[in-house]
Simulated scan of single mutants.
Amino acid sequence: MSSIKTLAAPVECELEIKKSRFIGRVETISDLDEGMALVESLRKLHPEATHVCFSMLVAGQVRQSDDGEPSGTAAKPMLNVLQHKHLDGVLATVVRYFGGVKLGAGGLVRAYSQAISEPLGRAEYVEIKPRAEAVVSVDFEYDSLLRRLAREAGLEIDVHYLDRVSARVSGDAVALQNWLEMLTEQTRGTATLEQDSL
């Protein structure tokens, strides 16, 4: 399975296809609401544009619009490019200024795909590492072991003392899983997993 990536920085390009101007942009977003706010600001920035089409993908959720282009000719091809590149947490937008020459359905699909593919060809990518969290408890004698293993694994830890040592540990999902296995082994199975989001 390919790793999930996002962009290190926004990328943009401008194309002219049969007198129509296409401004393609891809940028990172943290949620769909942020994406919609960016689309609205783009509409204000380009009030004369014929279409402002978009496709966004965040944690498996999709929102998109052909904005008046024939159904399936703008947003879907843009989404296909994002998915083909294994991207997440991204918004792809294409602003189109109609130049008077109709492109037909096939021409539109190619134009919108190209307006997103071209800037992505120059983009820098960052791998998205899944994070997880767990709450564990151990006997007091394992307090320093718990802390040392978490530090060595690069995990964040928040410790509380109750009838046992209780710790909320978070970080990279793979590192956390390995840490849990090591902790269980080194405490001879006495470590208790209270809750997890692995």
Rank of each mutant, 00 (worst) to 15 (best):
T73N: 07
V81G: 01
A75P: 04
V95R: 04
S2A: 06
S137G: 15
F140W: 11
A59P: 14
A153Q: 07
M1L: 05
T93E: 06
L180Q: 03
E185K: 02
L103A: 08
K5S: 02
F22K: 01
R122K: 13
V81E: 08
Q186N: 09
D33W: 02
R25Y: 04
L103K: 05
R63G: 12
L79K: 05
S117W: 09
L45G: 15
L149C: 03
Q177P: 03
S65F: 11
T192K: 13
R188V: 01
S2P: 02
Y161M: 12
S117D: 13
K18P: 00
A123W: 05
S144H: 14
I29Y: 07
G121T: 09
Y161Q: 11
K44I: 13
R164Y: 15
G154L: 11
E27K: 01
A37M: 12
R25N: 07
A123K: 05
N80L: 15
V165Q: 03
R188A: 11
L57E: 04
D163A: 09
V138L: 10
D33A: 10
R148P: 02
L45K: 15
G68M: 14
A105V: 11
H160T: 10
A175D: 09
L145G: 04
V26A: 06
D66C: 13
L146P: 00
G106S: 04
V109E: 02
P77T: 14
A132C: 08
S55D: 14
S55Y: 08
E14S: 03
V159M: 15
